[in-house]
Computed example of a mutant assay.
Amino acid sequence: MNKPFHQLHAKKWLHGRPEEDVYKLLIDTYRLRMEDIYNLEGDVDADSIYSGVSSGIPGFRRFLRLVERRRELLPEWWSPAKSQECVALASGQHNDYNVDHAVEKSDIIQQYGDQMMPMQLRMLGEQIYGTGPGGQPGAAMMQMQMLAEGGGGGLEMLNLDVNQLLRRGR
């Protein structure tokens, strides 16, 4: 995606994507948020797998209802039927997007091949929940990332992979 932080800021990050990609991004936003609540706040949602329930689907359904209240975040094609398709993917036992399995930041990076994807998911989560992980606002980081995407006077270095720099120096 071109300028993902600009897209997030404009609340268009999920727009223009294939349906299954939107489902996967919503699932991973939810799973990463549950992980953050557990790790950063030392708390758990009562209906998430971190509380010991046998299925995270009730918590994920609650999450989707929150998303649907922020209609501008969702693509125009979103409907109750699409919500059910998303839940079906989240409950699939043989896929990487099952809400009954925890996810960590490193899993997200590996899955998407993007060091910045956890931050993007967290920023989408902030738009959905109204707060960032641990209650921290992400507005300053959003602005910094948008500057970096737009050639913000040297800030473009924020998005470089250090390994790429080391390989070039050989």
Rank of each mutant, 00 (worst) to 15 (best):
F60V: 02
G152Y: 00
R170N: 12
M142R: 11
L40I: 08
S79P: 01
G132H: 00
L147H: 07
R167H: 14
A88W: 15
S106T: 15
R70W: 05
R170K: 13
Y97R: 05
R61I: 07
P75G: 10
V44Y: 01
L121S: 05
D43F: 06
M117F: 09
R33M: 04
V53I: 08
E72S: 08
W13Y: 12
G132Q: 00
D28A: 03
D114C: 04
L124A: 05
P80N: 10
R71K: 10
G153R: 13
Y112R: 02
M119W: 12
L155M: 13
R61V: 04
G92C: 11
L26T: 05
K105S: 07
I37A: 03
G42V: 07
V162I: 10
Q110S: 14
L8H: 09
Q110L: 11
V87D: 00
G151C: 07
P133I: 00
R71P: 06
K11I: 10
V103P: 10
L66A: 12
M1R: 07
I108Y: 02
S51K: 12
V53R: 02
S55P: 11
N159D: 07
R70N: 13
E85G: 04
F5V: 06
S83C: 06
Q111A: 04
E68T: 10
M116V: 10
S83Y: 05
D100Q: 06
I57P: 01
S54K: 01
V162Q: 06
Y23D: 09
R61N: 05
Q93F: 14
M144L: 15
D21E: 15
M1L: 14
P4H: 13
P137F: 00
H9V: 07
D36K: 01
L89C: 06
M144F: 13
G154L: 04
Y30M: 14
Q136I: 06
S106E: 09
G92E: 03
V162R: 05
E35H: 12
L73V: 05
M146H: 03
V99N: 01
G154Q: 08
W77I: 07
L73D: 00
L165S: 13
I108C: 01
S48T: 12
D45R: 09
M123N: 02
E85H: 15
E76D: 13
E72W: 09
A139Q: 11
E104R: 14
Y97H: 03
M34Q: 09
M34P: 01
F5M: 05
F60T: 01
L155I: 03
D47E: 10
N98L: 02
R168V: 13
Q120D: 02
A148E: 00
